[in-house]
Structure formats: C-alpha cells, structure tokens
C-alpha cells in the first residue's frame, strides 16, 4: 500500500463533541454521592418506608449504575456497538441468574 493516509487524530474532537465538560462530570459525581446518601438513609428508615423500601433501593441502585455507565463510561455518546457488547452480557447475566435463583425458590423467601 503506497497511499499516504493522514493520522486521524479525531479522538479529542469526539469527546469535545459528545462528552461532558469537567464541570458536568463533577455535577454527576455530586448527584451520585447524594443518591448514595439517600440509599443509606433508606437503610436506616426501613420500618417507616414499608413496602417502598426494597423497590426504592433497587431503583436508586439502578440509577447509579446507569449514570456511571452512560456518562462516566461514555456509553451514551459512543457507538451503539459498544453498548450492544456490554448489554448482551448484562442481560444474559441478569436473566440467567434470576431464573437460577427463582428455581431455587430464592424470591419466595
């Protein structure tokens, strides 16, 4: 191959285009910290929360999980192929292990 290709240093631009600013990341980190604090409060007020306790905690956990995934790990801004690779694993893991625990009557307890 004798053609000369220019170095594609578009990497930086990619992030400037799609990613967040440093301030944005800091805001997300603060948000995550607040949710963590709320989670801890949840764990101390279980009796008052009653039926809302478990679903509430799981939702907060999921919010944190996806915030890190989408923003810190750039999945929101990156190619869908990366998301696909990860989500196949995630879905298989959640699916298989949930069924596995269900067959062992975990969720009845």
């Amino acid at each position: 191959m004798s053609t000369v290709t220019e170095q594609h240093n578009t990497h930086g631009d990619d992030h400037a285009d799609h990613g967040l600013t440093d301030l944005g990341y800091i805001k997300i980190a603060i948000f995550l910290a607040v949710i963590t604090a709320v989670e801890v409060v949840f764990s101390y007020t279980q009796d008052q929360l009653g039926a809302a306790f478990l679903p509430g905690l799981l939702i907060l956990m999921a919010v944190k999980f996806f915030m890190v995934l989408l923003y810190f790990m750039h999945l929101k801004f990156d190619s869908k192929l990366f998301s696909l690779m990860f989500y196949i694993g995630l879905v298989l893991a959640v699916g298989c292990y949930a069924v596995f625990l269900a067959t062992l009557h975990f969720f009845q307890s």
Binding site: G95, A102, H105
Partner: peptide
Amino acid sequence: GWGVWAHHMFASGLGPIS
C-alpha cells in the same frame, strides 16, 4: 441456548414449573 440449561437437571427435583 442460554435458556435451556436446566433440561440437564430434570431428574433433580426442580419443581413442575421450572
């Protein structure tokens, strides 16, 4: 292929639904 593994365990007493 991910959703059939327990057919190796039919004789292990999984319960009728599983």
